[in-house]
């Protein structure tokens, strides 16, 4: 334990240069290196191959690798940009960057839209919205009658679907979010502001690496 340079340890498959990732994201090089420490922990939780599988993602989120959750599935699928069933390090950093407090709001809005566009048609459709509300109700103790759910979905659509064509496109979504900024609440993770503090063991390693550079 202690002062071991990350430079000399074996890197996980899909490892990318922190300097390149920092240049493309809201993170500094040190923060990307701290994220690598986190990534390694997550990617060895179950399947020890240095890649984050869905079961490992679920285990990290819920302390249960079996727990099914529609929204966690969607987040995983969006992080898995290559759609090869795993989150690689570069995908992890680029995706998490959207959740950084300093990331452009435009990116957060677009990511949230893609999350809710379950069938990836480019629109949030009424049926999708109802499906997501029902999924949330199933996961929680909230109990609402089908009639009330229909009313809520209708009302939300009435507000968001300004063109009245029965589906919400990205422009309508942007307008809707402007009027309801709380909808982006989940798109910012304050933890990312001090990721190097969250992984102090990394800081010791990083100092050795930086001297080497």
């Amino acid at each position: 334990m202690g002062c071991i340079s990350t430079k000399h340890t074996k890197q996980t498959p899909g490892y990318e240069d922190p300097k390149v990732l920092a240049s493309e994201t809201a993170f500094t090089v040190s923060e990307v290196e701290a994220l690598y420490e986190l990534y390694k922990k997550l990617s060895f939780l179950i399947i020890k191959d240095g890649l984050i599988h869905k079961e490992e993602f679920q285990l990290a989120l819920f302390r249960n690798s079996e727990k099914q959750n529609l929204f966690a599935d969607r987040v995983f699928d969006l992080f898995d940009v290559k759609h090869n069933g795993v989150i690689e390090f570069g995908e992890f950093v680029r995706s998490l960057s959207i959740f950084h407090p300093d990331a452009p709001e435009e990116d957060k809005i677009a990511f949230a839209f893609r999350l809710y566009d379950l069938r990836q048609t480019g629109y949030i459709e009424r049926e999708e919205l109802k499906e997501m509300v029902m999924a949330l109700l199933n996961e929680s103790d909230l109990r609402l009658s089908d009639e009330v759910v229909e009313q809520i979905v209708d009302k939300t659509f009435g507000q968001a679907d300004s063109k009245g064509d029965g589906r919400i496109d990205l422009d309508e979504w942007k307008e809707f979010v402007k009027k309801n900024p709380s909808l982006l609440r989940n798109m910012t993770l304050p933890y990312l502001k001090d990721i190097t503090m969250a992984f102090p063991s990394f800081v010791m390693k990083s100092e050795v690496s930086d001297e080497d550079m």
Binding site: L38, K41, L42, L45, A60, L61, F62, R63, N69, L70, F71, A72, D73, R74, V75, L96, F99, Y116, L129, M132, V133, A135, L136, L137, E139, S140, L142, V148, Q151, I152, V153, K155, T156, Q159, N180, S182, L183, R185, N186, L189, Y191, I195, A198
Partner: peptide, 24 residues
């Protein structure tokens, strides 16, 4: 009701990524 469908959805634990940062 004044509930917005997206506000309801946003309550899902699946959106709470803070678990990624907790001690493993």
């Amino acid at each position: 009701t004044n509930l917005n469908a997206f506000d309801i959805i946003s309550l899902s634990a699946g959106f709470d990524l803070s678990g990624l940062f907790e001690e493993k």
